[in-house]
Simulated assay, not measured.
Amino acid sequence: MTEVAQPSASVRVVRVGPVDFEVEFRTGPSPRTAPVLVVRAPAESPRIMAQQAEAVVSWADLVGVRIGGVTAPGVLPAGVGMEDLADGLGEVLDELGLARVNVCGGSFAGDLAYRFAVRHPDRLERVVLTGPGGRVGDHLPPGMGPLELAERLMEAGRPATADYIASALLCLDPALPVRGRAVLRRAMLEQLHRSDDAEFHRWLRCLELQYTAPPLTGDGPGAPLLAVTGEHDVPAPPAACRALAARCPQGVFATIRESDHFVFLTRPSEHLDLTRRFLLDEPLDDLPYLAELERPYRTAAVVPAATG
């Protein structure tokens, strides 16, 4: 039996000013495009990250980044904001000797990836943002701010706070079909219940970064950019996702059927397939899992998605 060589991986910490970036680099056997910089989100568990890495390295090298005090253990100093982190990603690429990359991120990481793309357009090949909301505080219900949640945690306790968070982030309307909704809700509640104080503080710090981020202004990057989300996303509604794509001259907007904000968890195969197709510049038309597909920059032209 012929053994198939496994992609090599290395993990290191790159310190940029007061911020630690935990960097995982995986090389694939036959890359077909520039390395893929994946900015990790809080909801991505080690199992999810491993599955994504295995899929990506079949066609590209992968650079996975977690941020100390936000998505990795550590403390993110007060005063460090989204722009600082976006510029820090650029310095990570300098440290790795990578001039240009594809960039991916979901949820909080999608918002950060977009700000990186705006501030460092010369480093881009293509960009995939999943569930980017711009300013998440514009779409979440009252009481979801970091200070309010900290107070709720002190007054109501961990179980009640976890239930409130899950109810705010998930689409719970029974009239709207979302695959894996019940399983994801249970998993989210269990994760929040199990979290120690340090993990919960990192989650609140992530939320604080999003709530305090300056508003987006002007056009987005000129590189091809896909903004995709679940068709029933709550914290990053499709309209907000479309508006982000509409800022970009080569922006594409799409929604995946029967999913909400956590589409990368509940429909991972479809999400990874769409990501691969876009980064390799393959056609996106007539994909059965897409509910919407549009190129909205300065035009109202719609590319029909498949029905059924």
Rank of each mutant, 00 (worst) to 15 (best):
V4M: 02
Q6W: 07
G17P: 04
G17N: 11
G17I: 08
P18D: 09
D20R: 11
E22S: 06
F25I: 05
G28M: 01
P31C: 00
A34F: 00
L37Q: 00
V39R: 01
S45W: 10
I48H: 15
E54M: 14
V56D: 02
D61I: 08
V65K: 00
G69Y: 10
A72I: 10
V80P: 01
G81A: 06
D87I: 05
L89M: 11
L98P: 02
N102L: 02
G106N: 01
F108N: 02
F108H: 10
Y114W: 12
V118E: 15
P121W: 14
R123G: 09
V127E: 12
G133R: 10
G133Q: 12
H139I: 10
L153Y: 09
A156I: 00
G157L: 05
R158V: 03
R158F: 01
R158Y: 03
L172C: 04
A175P: 05
G180Y: 09
A182K: 13
A182S: 03
V183F: 12
R186K: 15
M188C: 12
E190T: 11
R194N: 10
R194Q: 10
A198K: 06
E199D: 09
E199H: 07
E199A: 12
W203R: 14
W203D: 06
R205C: 04
C206A: 07
Y211V: 00
Y211P: 01
L216S: 09
T217E: 14
H232Q: 06
P238D: 03
G251K: 10
E258K: 15
S259R: 06
S259M: 09
S269A: 15
S269L: 15
H271N: 12
T275K: 09
R277P: 04
L280I: 15
P283S: 14
L290I: 06
L293F: 00
Y297N: 05
